[in-house]
């Protein structure tokens, strides 16, 4: 039964996963291909040296001349985790609120299955899809590292991509909660993307204002990526905290989904 629900949820995801995977791979390969040029032009680092330190930190431009700084500033301080989170929110929406809006839930939920089993399968499917995307991102980045001789330790790459992936899992779980409470795709996707963007803003911009620095620690984005995992080995809790938040959001989603009316087509 659980297997049937899970495979039913996973089957239609292939195409969307391929699109997101291709887009992220393209971004990573294109960006990484510029590394040799960056390495050989010290002028770039000097230009950044002229900018205010707070802005440099906020934009993740800390040290573009080093391999870690280059990848962090161009990809992992914002673009890759943000895109992965948007992918997670989008995949989770298509598995939940979009199904309800288009009336596909009607036939499914009138079968001898519980709502909890259906939503559990769908949240699991979304999480598996995000993990698959994370695995693809890691493999592509690892390959790019070898091709253009970037030279970031593979453990740091794995850790960084894992933390980006967990950020995306949080976005997917927030999406599932939005879908479970309202059944509306816009609200669901907005919940996932909104939490991610708010987390980024709090993590990256609040520290620039005096007195607001400590606010960054309420941001799930900061939990995962606030330690700059490409340059510093991430503490264990940075993996655990986003996953714990995702679990809480998923549990709330299951509770909410079992309490309301299912929308008709």
């Amino acid at each position: 039964m659980t297997g049937a629900l899970l495979s039913g949820a996973l089957r239609p995801l292939g195409r969307a996963l391929a699109v997101w995977g291709t887009a992220l791979a393209g971004l990573i390969l294109l960006t990484s291909a510029f590394w040799p040029a960056f390495r050989d032009s010290p002028g770039m680092t000097e230009a950044i040296g002229g900018m205010p330190q707070g802005l440099v930190d906020a934009l993740g431009l800390g040290d573009l001349g080093t391999p870690e700084g280059f990848l962090w500033g161009n990809l992992y301080s914002l673009l890759v985790p943000l895109l992965m989170a948007v992918a997670g929110a989008s995949l989770a929406t298509s598995l939940t609120a979009r199904q309800e809006e288009s009336g596909h839930y009607e036939l499914l939920l009138t079968q001898p299955v519980s709502r909890t089993a259906v939503l559990t399968a769908r949240i699991t499917a979304a999480a598996l899809a995000v993990l698959a995307l994370g695995a693809a991102v890691f493999l592509v980045q690892w390959a790019a590292d070898a091709i253009w001789d970037i030279g970031v330790p593979v453990a740091r790459l794995a850790s960084t991509v894992a933390l980006c992936t967990f950020t995306a899992v949080v976005a997917a779980a927030a999406t599932a909660l939005g879908a479970a409470v309202t059944g509306r795709p816009a609200v669901a996707e907005g919940a996932g993307v909104g939490l991610t963007v708010a987390g980024y803003v709090v993590s990256a911009l609040f520290p620039l204002r005096e007195g607001w620095e400590s606010a960054q620690y309420i941001s799930p984005w900061n939990w995962a990526l606030g330690g700059e995992p490409l340059t510093t080995t991430a503490e264990w809790w940075r993996y655990l905290a986003p996953l714990a938040l995702a679990a809480v959001l998923a549990a709330l989603a299951l509770a909410a989904f079992d309490r309301r009316d299912i929308h008709a087509a």
Partner: peptide, 10 residues
């Protein structure tokens, strides 16, 4: 077994 009035299929 139920056949809904407004039937949407994947």
């Amino acid at each position: 077994s139920y056949v809904p009035g407004e039937l949407r299929l994947p």
